[in-house]
């Protein structure tokens, strides 16, 4: 695991979600799988976390400016009557151990370690394992690319969010390290290649199956199905 990308060291990722994605995240209007991916990036990126708290404060200001809807005393009484059974909880927020760079949210979803997952081979270099989030529209999966391996040129019929977890990869637009967040819209063709010295582990959220564009792999397209849910 890359030491230099630890959250505690506050080393920033270099590729970030755009402001509109962060706004949707802060407003709670992203789909579940996408919001999980953005939340995982925030885990690595202090700067985006700060932006999100500001965006939440914007939401709070709007919330406070709403025209209040009258709430009857009956409702207040009902709530007051329940306070005894719902005593305030007193606790210190759990501290993250700092030993593990894997976002806590992701660990929960995986219910285990990367090695406990069932990896499906797509090409020699690429293995995928879908993770269940309950999102009916978006597939949330982990991608494993062998060191130096390339994913054949492909596009997406929908959007793709990617977060690098370990190792890294590069494509025609740049190179990406742990914590880096990449968003591609539909019809954006790219051919990511993992760094030569380390296997690459990524989180990917897509709403349509990828589609290989090269003749060599095109035959596989009908077999690539979205595994949302």
């Amino acid at each position: 695991m890359n030491q230099e990308y630890r959250v505690e060291d506050k080393v920033m990722a270099k590729h970030h979600p755009e402001l509109d994605i962060l706004t949707e995240h802060a407003a709670g209007s992203l789909s579940l799988a996408q919001t999980a991916c953005v939340a995982a990036h925030l885990n690595y990126c202090h700067c985006c976390s700060q932006t999100v708290s500001r965006l939440q404060a914007v939401g709070a200001a709007m919330f406070e400016s709403l025209d209040p809807e009258p709430v009857g005393d009956a409702l207040l009484d009902r709530v007051l009557a329940r306070l005894d059974e719902e005593a305030p909880l007193s606790y210190q927020p759990a501290r993250r151990s700092g030993q593990d760079a894997t976002p806590a949210l992701l660990s929960r979803l995986m219910a285990g370690d990367f090695s406990d997952l069932v990896w499906k081979k797509v090409t020699d270099a690429l293995r995928i394992t879908p993770i269940r989030t309950g999102d009916p529209q978006f597939e949330f999966s982990l991608l494993h690319i062998k060191a130096g391996g390339e994913i054949p040129p492909h596009d997406h019929r929908g959007s793709e969010m990617t977060l690098v977890l370990q190792g890294g990869f590069s494509d025609d637009r740049g190179s990406y390290h742990p914590g880096d967040f990449i968003y591609r819209s539909a019809n954006d063709v790219h051919a990511p290649r993992a760094f030569a010295d380390e296997d690459c582990l990524c989180l990917a959220v897509i709403d349509a199956p990828l589609r290989f564009t090269g003749w060599k792999y095109r035959w596989m397209n009908p077999f690539l199905r979205l595994q949302a849910g």
């Binding site: 939340a39 989030t133 999102d135």
Partner: peptide, 26 residues
């Protein structure tokens, strides 16, 4: 009828990570 293991609050970073300086201003 979403069947999900996650609650929305699981996506919020812990308040402990916030910097007091910025938040005081807020």
């Amino acid at each position: 009828k979403f069947d999900t293991p996650l609650a929305a609050e699981d996506f919020s970073p812990d308040q402990e990570h916030e910097e007091p300086f910025m938040q005081l201003q807020s």
